[in-house]
Design a protein around this nucleic acid. Structure first.
Length: 586
RNA sequence: GCGCCCGUAGCUCAGCUGGAUAGAGCGUCGGCCUCCGAAGCCGAAGGUCAGAGGUUCGAAUCCUCUCGGGCGUACCA
């Protein structure tokens, strides 16, 4: 007796095809089957998925086209796979449009994985990200770690991992001695109250300009006193500056929509470093060198990792090691990601090397997730260069966000003057444009910070994708099925998915969502999702050109409304993972 | 010097871990708003995938070398 499938169980057409292919190749060695992976065909006209037959041909000592022909002939169509055709050395499979549509539309609208969050998978991941230096304004340099880390936190969580997002604030260390020294010289409580971050930035720049041996010595002494553990003036000043900074950081984080599960900066490990150092000392790998306590790494081609400086104070490596020990005990994580600029590559190699020398398995759970710099264009030479905080040409994040929002506001006034809540929409679109821009390219690439590029909202930009959402929302509004609700009331049991055959481009792109999110997580590369969103938005825009929804016959209209609702929701899901807002109107 | 990263259209970048004729956006040129949103769509032009070897049925993709650029190279983070 064959039992009918439960009504809501969904068949992923691609997974189904993979199984069918595996069955087809059941008698070939595993390695050959492994080598024969389904790939997108060169041209969609060939089919939806292609199977290169070279490895099989080699095994059977026959020409690849013959092997492909045999496989295609042996394949029988079913209710998901429509056909298998051999063209040259490839077998091209074509999936039934109705099957794809049913899977994708139903999956999205009922929020089933991979379109909705997956069930918990038991994996624990800690993500160390953002981590700005206290007492300095939140500038563009901090944006990347914040935005990439925020996206990764949501992506891994979407896939069912238990994620701990940690803001490892730079609120400790010898740089603090400098800031305290600067504040004592030139600081003003009045200014600090008025414009805290700008004031701290000013005195920091001044310190850099007036730096000399006496100042440096004073700063080192200030940090030494801070780290002494005593309740002294240094500690009270540090506390004050830290409080002020944390308060000031709330603004950017709120605007960017970034959240943390733990805000435990470097100072959190102040009372855990002694134990950490002892733990490392106990393994016998620590030596004295030039007055400092270090782990020699010459055998691995690296400079030594310093645990304690010659003046007795600690260094960031010490705190990172203490943090690893703490997080191991606290979270028993499977993976620890560090979303930190690529210029700190060596530091993380050293960190791993030390853990490895200690014989700790945690060494291979540490993953540095590096990213490129933000470059600014020199107005005179036209060449790209590094922002220098010291030179004072750092761009503050607030400034950038404000500028982008103001620009959006102007565009709204021009294109959609009657828009309600124009200010809120401008905020959402402007901030999103900045986030989107940062997540658009591979994270390892440097980001060229160009106002002109940033303020252009056409083409592959955040507003372009958001515009697709707004258009789709507009259609749903007019259709009266969805109004403004998050989940439009589409009666899925009355949708004839066969009617959506003409939307194959949209459907095939939506079908890639699951694998794309997987890949984004695997590579820690949010840009994979960004690219897909751009493509989906484009497919939708093209589709809407030739296929009217509102004026279609009832059955067709219902099917298209389901598609429109699903496409909009999937854009929203994907963009939400990236931290990009999706207003209904713009 | 050594280590890591990058090099694809005029510019900014994709290229799904080795598959078929290398793709987008911006910019340029040309079309499309009596038609659900023109922040849109359609089309054209534009390439020695930095260069040279190698690996194999097949290389932008993997290996070696060269060139160019970036970052880092013990008491900053």
């Amino acid at each position: 007796m064959v039992r009918a499938r439960p009504p809501m169980s969904l068949i992923d057409p691609v997974e189904h095809l993979k199984q069918r292919v595996a069955e087809l190749l059941h008698d070939v060695p595993d390695e050959v089957r492994e080598a024969m992976r389904l790939t997108p065909p060169k041209d969609r006209r060939f089919g939806d998925l292609a199977l290169p037959c070279f490895p099989l041909a080699k095994l059977r000592q026959q020409p690849p086209p013959a092997a492909a022909a045999e496989l295609a002939a042996a394949f029988t169509a079913d209710d998901v796979v429509e056909a298998a055709n051999a063209t040259g050395p490839f077998v091209n499979f074509r999936l039934r449009r109705g099957a794809i549509a049913r899977y994708v539309v139903t999956g999205v609208l009922t929020r089933q994985a991979p379109f909705g969050p997956a069930a918990p998978n038991g994996k624990k991941i800690v993500i160390d990200f953002s981590s700005p230096n206290i007492a300095k304004p939140f500038h563009m340099g901090h944006l990347r770690s914040t935005v990439i880390g925020g996206a990764l936190r949501r992506i891994h969580r979407h896939l069912g991992c238990e994620v701990h997002g940690i803001n490892h604030l730079g609120d400790w260390g010898s740089q603090f001695g400098k800031i305290m020294t600067a504040f004592r010289r030139w600081g003003s409580d009045v200014e600090l109250a008025k414009r805290p971050m700008h004031h701290l930035f000013e005195i920091y720049v001044r310190y850099g300009a007036e730096k000399n041996d006496a100042l440096e010595a004073e700063s080192a002494e200030a940090f030494r006193r801070l780290e002494s553990g005593e309740d002294n003036p240094e500690r009270r000043l540090w506390q004050k500056l830290r409080d002020v900074s944390l308060e000031a950081f709330r603004g950017p984080y709120e605007r960017l929509g970034v959240e943390f599960d733990h805000i435990t900066g470097e100072s959190f490990y102040e009372d855990k470093m002694e134990a950490a150092i002892e733990k490392i000392e106990a393994t016998g790998i620590v030596t004295e060198s030039e007055g400092a306590r270090v782990v020699e790494l010459e055998d691995r081609g690296m400079p030594p990792c310093i645990l304690r400086k010659s003046d007795g104070t600690t260094i960031y490596a010490t705190r990172d090691l203490a943090a690893v020990f703490y997080r191991m005990a606290e979270f028993s994580f499977d993976r620890a990601l560090y979303v930190v600029g690529s210029e700190q590559n060596l530091h993380f190699q050293q960190l791993v090397a030390v853990l490895d020398k200690m014989g700790l398995p945690v060494a291979n759970k540490i993953e540095h997730v590096p990213f490129g710099l933000i470059l600014s264009k020199d107005a005179n030479t036209g060449k790209w260069g590094k922002f220098s905080t010291r030179g004072g040409n750092a761009i503050f994040l607030e400034e950038v966000l404000d500028e982008a929002v103001a620009n959006v506001r102007r565009i709204i006034a021009e294109k959609n003057p009657d828009l309600e809540d124009a200010d809120q929409v401008a905020e959402a679109v402007g901030v999103s444009a900045i986030i989107f821009n940062d997540l658009k390219n591979s994270r390892i690439k440097d980001v060229k910070f160009d106002w002109e590029l940033l303020l252009n909202f056409e083409g592959e930009t955040g507003p372009y994708v958001q515009y697709a959402v707004a258009r789709l929302s507009g259609i749903l509004r007019k259709s009266e099925v969805g109004a403004n609700g998050e989940a439009p009331q589409i009666p899925l049991d009355r949708v004839d998915f066969e009617q959506l055959a003409d939307a194959e481009q949209v459907l095939l792109t939506m079908l890639e969502f699951g694998p794309t999110v997987e890949r984004a997580a695997e590579l820690n590369e949010p840009s994979a999702i960004t690219s897909l969103m751009i493509r989906l938005a484009g497919d939708i825009h093209s589709y809407l050109r030739d296929h009217n929804v509102i004026r279609a016959e009832p059955d067709l209209q219902m099917a298209r409304l389901a598609l429109v609702a699903a496409a909009r929701d999937l854009l929203r899901v994907g963009l939400a993972l990236l931290g990009v807002a999706t207003p209904d109107r713009m």
